[in-house]
Design a protein around this nucleic acid. Structure first.
Lengths: 255, 255
DNA sequence: CGGGTTCTTGACTAGTTTCAAGCAAAGTGG
DNA sequence: CCACTTTGCTTGAAACTAGTCAAGAACCCG
């Protein structure tokens, strides 16, 4: 099913023309010219809905598709043979998935939906047209790749050099900031469909220790966390503890 | 000094025209058309030599330059305020440095030379010309970005989910494979200018534990390591222990 | 031949994992 | 609609991996 998302899912909703894309209305994304928009419209071959647990991409396979998330959450991960899992990053509205697949053919990681997830679908091989005729969009793709690299750099710093307490604080701040930038947070509150096992696999910790660390942050009065419902009680203190940069974000491209 | 590498270093050696670039002769790199080569030649504003410990890029600054390493080793890293260091990746012949700088203006990491390092220098702002007129080269840049992403994914998997023994084995295999692909390894031997502190900061381990783990691998008869001189005694066993993929590499672009 | 790095080793400590058990909440099916 | 199962969360205790401290040896470089 995961390798034929279109036939399996295309019927499950109305396809939105790129001009009417709800994401484009958000200030977080750079606005495109008529022509650029038109090109993307032609590049897009449809939309697909994925259910919780369904794979968008699978490690080691050659997906013919790449995606841009419209709404919903997903996560990118790798497995060791014995089942140990490392979550590399999360995907939410506006995130592009499948750059490695576009460039190398095969994907080095898997992507799974954390709940109902809707995505724009593009044909991997036609992405080359974008480079030939739309340098501005090609640059946008590079922008997105550089952003992914920056997030990975930060995560690696966390997992390699921060204590468990700092790590959890950093992840919470990171996810909140990203969700907020696409309008998913209300004040200091955010509902995110991840379990403590996901947090553990993101931070390189065990489930038990993650639970204890999370409880510690709650007891310290810095945040609240109940079944994926997150509230930042002391945002500044969390940021300070995590070494997280609270500065404003710039506008970003959307493909 | 690090922000004016050209004036400081340009005199320290002959500049090689791109057509005569020794790297291009290697099978690892894809060959370019006359026109592509000519364009890169015009984009290049010189070469620079860096000494051990010198910075090519500095976290949080806006370097006007980006680089391609000609020879020598460097490493990319981030610091926490209290001095904890995480090494994100290494840079050697053919590696492009400064993608984040090109796209965001400021750099999120630092790059430091591990010994004498010579690099091609490009002006960050003129990279946009490459997108406008040379889609094939723009795609190459994206290729390099995707490769960096893949390496970071792998490192994150290591640091997050592998044991100390597996981590060291993985790093050794990774560095050896990269060095070998650009002709720096002889048989099963390689001289790499890194200390055990670098290994520790790459893998998220303490110096002492890194030393003990390295000794254990030596005692197990899998490798030899003396002051940066590495020999893979049991390459297959190391790969198996590390969960490292021994498969052949494809040709890669060079900018 | 110093003097500084880098490496090595042992003893002790702290942080984290593993094991185990129980509970709460949310499905699922008869 | 209620037993039954599954999934996720929580807690305590024991085991272990990795970190810290300390000191000395080996190695380079000038």
């Amino acid at each position: 099913m995961s390798d034929r998302p279109l036939s399996a899912n295309a019927a499950s909703g109305e396809t939105v023309p790129c001009e009417d894309c709800p994401l484009r209305r958000r200030a977080a994304f750079r606005s495109l010219s008529e022509d650029e928009l038109h090109f993307i419209e032609r590049l897009k071959i449809g939309e697909a809905t994925f259910v919780k647990g369904q794979a968008l991409l699978t490690e080691g396979t050659r997906s013919p598709y790449v995606y841009t998330v419209l709404h919903g959450w997903g996560f990118r991960y790798k497995l060791l043979e014995d089942g140990r899992r490392q979550i590399l990053n999360y995907a939410l509205s506006g995130d592009f998935l499948g750059l490695q697949a576009s460039v190398f053919g095969d994907t080095g990681y898997s992507v799974e939906a954390l709940g109902p997830l809707r995505a724009c679908v593009f044909q991997r091989e036609r992405l080359w047209e974008l480079y030939k005729s739309w340098p501005s969009l090609a640059f946008d793709l590079t922008w997105l790749a550089a952003r992914e690299e920056r997030i990975l750099d930060d995560n690696l710093l966390s997992v390699g050099r921060r204590s468990a307490l700092e790590r959890v604080a950093y992840l919470v701040m990171h996810l909140f900031a990203r969700a907020e930038s696409v309008g998913l947070a209300t004040g200091d509150r955010l509902t995110l469909p991840i379990t403590q096992q996901h947090v553990a696999d993101t931070l390189g910790l065990s489930l038990v220790h993650t639970n204890k660390t999370l409880s510690r942050l709650v007891r310290l009065g810095l945040l609240r966390w109940h079944a994926g419902s997150l509230a930042l009680v002391e945002r500044d203190k969390l940021a300070a503890l995590a070494g997280f940069d609270l500065e404003a974000r710039s506008v970003r491209p959307l493909i």
